[in-house]
Amino acid sequence: MEKLEEQIAHLTRTLEELNEVVARQDSEIAVLTRRVHMLMEREATRESEGGGGIVMGDERPPHY
């Protein structure tokens, strides 16, 4: 009986730890999703304003 109680206690602790990890990951995913959405909106605005990174004539690209 003691062995079963020890296993139940261990499994309960493991379950609580996993629950904390999943809750933290859920909030991190929500933050990252908002950031990606914001960046997509920013890029869409930038493209609609015509700043699409077109190289004119002898102009070097920005990575040079």
Rank of each mutant, 00 (worst) to 15 (best):
58 D>L: 05
5 E>S: 10
26 D>L: 08
52 G>V: 06
37 H>D: 15
47 E>M: 15
61 P>K: 03
9 A>S: 13
10 H>Y: 13
24 R>K: 15
8 I>P: 00
5 E>Q: 04
44 A>T: 01
24 R>C: 05
20 E>K: 03
22 V>H: 00
40 M>C: 11
20 E>N: 09
11 L>T: 09
26 D>Q: 15
19 N>R: 15
29 I>T: 14
62 P>T: 11
34 R>Q: 14
32 L>C: 04
47 E>F: 10
17 E>L: 12
16 E>F: 14
8 I>W: 01
39 L>N: 05
35 R>A: 10
16 E>P: 10
62 P>H: 06
52 G>N: 06
64 Y>E: 11
7 Q>G: 11
44 A>H: 03
5 E>V: 05
4 L>D: 02
47 E>T: 04
23 A>K: 15
43 E>Y: 07
17 E>V: 11
3 K>M: 10
33 T>V: 08
50 G>H: 00
56 M>I: 15
59 E>D: 14
58 D>S: 06
26 D>H: 05
42 R>G: 06
38 M>A: 15
24 R>M: 06
31 V>E: 08
56 M>F: 03
18 L>V: 08
10 H>P: 09
60 R>S: 01
13 R>F: 03
40 M>Y: 07
21 V>S: 04
38 M>W: 08
40 M>D: 15
19 N>H: 11
5 E>N: 07
15 L>S: 15
45 T>I: 07
25 Q>P: 03
13 R>I: 04
3 K>S: 09
61 P>T: 03
39 L>A: 03
29 I>E: 12
2 E>A: 08
64 Y>A: 05
